[in-house]
């Protein structure tokens, strides 16, 4: 007992400190431990959020320190919500979000299902599949820019090989409507392994005896898949969708490197637009309102989704 870590700490505590601590209640000690975290949370999360809300009702511009700041009420919100450009950017974001999630879920689950079957080279295949996820988005953005290059890019040559269409006759990142699909392809390539890993964890968590019981009941493989595999993997899959959804809603770096939001505004996601408003045009008040709108959107959607996730888990 005297050798236990607690006893050693007690012995090492100076008598004065020990005396003072003895006078504190459990609640007080708990507050002492929690206070630094709460303070940090308030300082770097809550205070900036409140400050941003305040700024969103003004015409403040961070690059114009000498200019008088005016209270503009809801004007910034009104401008954003009635701006066709903003809605177009939200649609672009929704397109990116929907299709990346769709492809990543379908491909990620399929890959997990295949990897979960025992075969030679299983480990090597898993390692190779997860490689893209380990790369930096900046690296991915840069090298896919080269892959998509119409004159020297491997992607265009692969398309030429498969379809016969000349490589230099189309530009994946240029005008013609392909750019928004190009960013979906790259994000899917990079993050499908993440969804696969989560699905794999779900698949491996299903006890074998359930399948054995189903076999005894002469359930077909198809029936086993839909009544055992899918329902039991679903909470994991939904969690993956939540993570990827939040990540892709704020997607910035990879798309900036690939297209810069172009051509025109074809791939201008809401996060890129927000950055331009805040740090290139320096419309701080306007961009604060924009940020609040995006925050409420993602927070609202995530809350609804988490409720649905919990309901699935409870089943």
């Amino acid at each position: 007992m005297t050798d236990s870590p607690i006893a050693r700490v007690a012995e090492a505590t100076p008598p004065g400190v020990a005396r003072r601590l003895r006078g504190l209640s459990d609640t007080a000690i708990a507050w002492i431990f929690v206070a630094p975290t709460i303070f940090l949370l308030l300082a770097i999360n809550i205070f900036p959020l409140i400050w941003t809300i305040r700024l969103s009702f003004t015409n403040f511009a961070a690059n114009r320190p000498g200019r008088e700041v005016e209270w503009v009420g809801l004007r910034n919100y009104e401008r954003i919500l009635t701006d066709e450009g903003t809605w177009a950017n939200m649609q672009t974001t929704a397109h990116f979000l929907f299709w990346t999630l769709f492809f990543q879920v379908v491909l990620g689950f399929t890959l997990a299902w295949l990897i979960n079957r025992k075969f030679r080279g299983n480990d090597l295949a898993t390692t190779l599949i997860v490689l893209p996820m380990m790369l930096s988005p900046a690296v991915v953005g840069n090298f896919w820019t080269f892959l998509y290059q119409p004159q020297i890019g491997l992607f265009n040559y692969a398309v030429e090989l498969l379809t016969g269409r000349p490589a230099s006759s189309f530009s994946m990142l240029g005008p013609g409507g392909l750019a928004k699909w190009s960013i979906v392809i790259v994000d899917t390539w990079m993050w499908t392994p993440f969804v696969m890993l989560i699905c794999l964890a779900g698949l491996r968590s299903i006890p074998d005896y359930i399948y054995e019981a189903a076999e005894i009941d002469r359930a077909s493989k198809w029936r086993q898949f839909w009544t055992i595999t899918v329902p039991m993997v679903l909470p994991f899959l939904m969690l993956a969708v939540l993570f990827r959804g939040i990540e892709n809603f704020k997607m910035f770096d990879m798309v900036v490197l690939l297209t810069g939001g172009g051509p025109g505004n074809e791939t201008l996601l809401a996060s890129i637009d927000l950055k331009r408003e805040a740090f290139e045009k320096w419309r701080t008040g306007y961009s604060s309102a924009y940020a609040i709108i995006l925050f409420v959107t993602v927070f609202g959607l995530a809350s609804i989704y988490v409720k649905a996730l919990n309901r699935v888990k409870e089943r």
Partner: peptide, 19 residues
């Protein structure tokens, strides 16, 4: 900066994206 970005957007949308 705001004036420039507005022109960048309008010109790129028309010249490159063909809108």
């Amino acid at each position: 900066a705001s004036l420039l970005l507005a022109m960048q957007e309008r010109l790129h949308n028309y010249v490159v994206a063909g809108q």
